[in-house]
Amino acid sequence: MGYLDSIDIGASALTAQRLRMDIISQNIANINTTRTDKGTPYRRKLVVFEERSPSAPFSTYLSESSKKIIGKGVRVARIAEDESPFKKIYEPGHPDADENGYVFMPNVDIVAEMVDMISATRAYEANVTSINSAKDMAMKTLQIGK
């Protein structure tokens, strides 16, 4: 248990949620992109969160203080790609259409992205609240003995 660890935990979550927001923006921006470096339409990207485990030395686990290990917040383990199939739409005039007139469009669902965005915003706000409360508690600590 370190002094002001709660603020670091909150900050790690803010970083993670902000990255998630960046990825959502990238998905929405590329909702109609049919060309990428790989030669396929754009694939939807998504973040994978992972708990940041406490990095305590082994001796800590043997001692009394092992009862007080909480963790170090959250981190983005990797940015994965959604492997679901591309959407196939009929549009013969499109330069990327195949011989039958079909175009493969990115597997981005705008509604899902919007919902994800709201979820990321709310999670961000919740973590701001948790940082503020940790700050208030630390300030209150300074009042001891006054």
Binding site: I9, A13, K68, V74, N127, S130
Partner: peptide
């Protein structure tokens, strides 16, 4: 104090599978 840390950790990991 420790509980505040635990709650912060829970809020931070609200979307961690």
């Amino acid at each position: 104090w420790l509980r505040n840390e635990a709650i912060s950790q829970n809020i931070a990991n609200v979307d961690t599978p």
